[in-house]
Structure formats: C-alpha cells, structure tokens
Write a protein that binds this DNA or RNA. Structure first.
Length: 263
DNA sequence: CTCGGAGCCTGTCTGC
DNA sequence: TGCAGACAGGCTCCGA
C-alpha cells in the first residue's frame, strides 16, 4: 500500500507525538513478525523519519525500529486513555503517554530491529534528495534494458516509488511506460526527473492516496486519489489530450497510460 | 546481470 | 446463492 508520499505523511504526523518520549515496551502480537525488541524498553525516541517506503523509529542509543508497511500496513497513534481496536493489531509500541499501533490486514508487512539508522536504509537513492541530478539519474539508469515503469519500481535504484506513482510519473513526463529506460534521450531524462519530483511532492501535499486501506498517522484517508491522472482510470478520458487511458500488465502488475500523448 | 513467474497473506468484486 | 478467478498500495526467491 503505502509508497513514499504515504509514509512521508505518516512520519511527519507521528514525529511530534513520539520524539523525545520514552519507550515502555514493545509488544509483538502477530508471530509472523520475527521480532525481539525487548531490549528497547526504557530508551527514548530520538527521531521518526521516512526512508524509502519505510518508517524508522530511531532511539537515542542508536538502534532503530523499522516498519515496512507493504500493502496494507497501517501505523496509528493512540493517546493514553483512548479506546483502540485490537482486530488485526500486529504490534504495539507503548510509550509514556500513548501507543503506536501497527495494523496489517494482509500481514505482508514487517517490523525489523536494526542496529542503526544506516542499517535500516535501503540501497537506492531518495528521489526527492537534491543530490539526484540528471547526471546521477543517468548513472542509475545506465545498463538497464527494463521498461521505464518497471525500472521506476526498482528500490535499489530509486527508493520509494510504488505502483501508483510508477504510472503517474511517466504520464507527467509524457513518456510511455513501456519504453526501454536506457533509450530515453537526455532531454527526456530531465523531463522524467522533473516528473518524479512534481508527482511525489504533489502527493505528499495531499497526504497520499487512499483507495481502501491506507490511512495516515491520524487514521484519516489521504486525498490524492482525487488528483490521479491515469492510475485506476482505464477507459476514462485523458485529462491532457482527450485520448483513452489504457491498462497494460507489466511484471504481473497494472500500468495505466495514455497511448495518445505519452511517446 | 536481466527476466518472468510463484509465493507470501487477506479481502473484495465480477462473472458465470 | 455459490463459487472460481481476478485483482489489490510490496517484496523475495527461484530457475532460465
């Protein structure tokens, strides 16, 4: 479920609630989560931040609890005294004045204890980091014969883009998602980089995209689904050229694009 | 290295 | 109504 904009939203909302608070205990409810976090009790939360599609809870003493939400993972803050649902609750981090609740319908999510923040970091480059220049993007693309959309999903190149934005970005760039990425011209690579930034930034401003399961750190749905140009809009009219939006399957996953104005 | 497919899970929707 | 199949925001593993 959550991609970079959704996890960024959750991290920004949770940070002021968790940072500086002491961890009382970490409770693992779903035994699919192979997590022993007993050693974290008593230490304070230093920072909450998003890295790629992951949410990291960094402790003062160095270790870091890493939440991979995958398709249906959800993180919510519940202040002391508030009622909370126990259904599909997979883990609970109890702090001084409330609880961080981890829910996950499909149970594909993970919670991993890392030695440090750096150990929790994925291999790829952050797409919104200023260090991602057109030259750097070309370095990352070099040698790949994958189609653009499939390449955008590679977390070892750029980290944080998922299936929704991997359709929205090629549309914003005016590029077909099935173009081999290494065949993009230098001007097309600049367009691609601008589209990556614009699409992710706009989605963050809308607190992410909600179809069914995603909720932000306050338990509220995002609003970016109202602003999606092509994702989930098969057979609808292209908002740019009036063409017909098409769905194709790449690597067993849906891709949406306009065959008229994406070249 | 790349690629395609299966698998991990649960839930919803569609069509017969 | 019942049931099979497709599909869903992700990722890893395997063999070719």
């Amino acid at each position: 479920m959550p991609e970079l904009p959704e996890v960024e939203t959750i991290a920004r909302q949770l940070a002021p609630l968790l940072e500086g608070r002491r961890v009382i205990r970490v409770e693992v409810i779903d035994d699919r989560l192979a997590l022993d976090a007993a050693g974290l009790s008593g230490f304070s939360v230093k920072r909450i931040l998003r890295i790629g599609k992951r949410l990291a809870v960094e402790l003062e003493t160095g270790p870091c609890l890493r939440f991979d939400l995958r398709m249906t993972g959800r993180l919510t803050w519940s202040p002391n005294g508030a009622e909370f649902c126990r259904e599909r609750l997979r883990a609970v981090v109890t702090l001084e004045d409330g609880r961080l609740l981890f829910y996950d319908i499909r149970r594909l999510g993970e919670v991993i204890l890392c030695d440090s923040l750096d150990a929790a970091r994925p291999a790829g480059v952050e797409p919104l980091d200023p260090s991602l220049t057109p030259e750097k993007l070309s370095e990352l693309i070099a040698g790949s014969r994958q189609p653009l959309k499939v390449w955008l999903l590679r977390q070892d190149r750029l980290t944080g883009i998922g299936n929704i934005y991997a359709s929205e970005i090629p549309f914003a760039a005016g590029l077909r998602p099935d173009r081999p990425v290494s065949e993009l011209t230098p001007p097309e690579r600049v367009k691609l980089l601008n589209a990556i930034r614009a699409v992710l930034t706009e989605a963050i401003a809308h607190r992410g995209t909600t179809f069914s399961d995603y909720r932000d750190g306050r338990g509220e749905p995002g609003s970016h689904q109202r602003h999606l140009r092509v994702y989930g809009r098969k057979d609808e009219v292209c908002p740019r050229c009036g063409g017909r939006i098409t769905r194709i399957v790449q690597r067993q996953r849906s891709t949406f694009f306009c065959p008229e104005c994406q070249v």
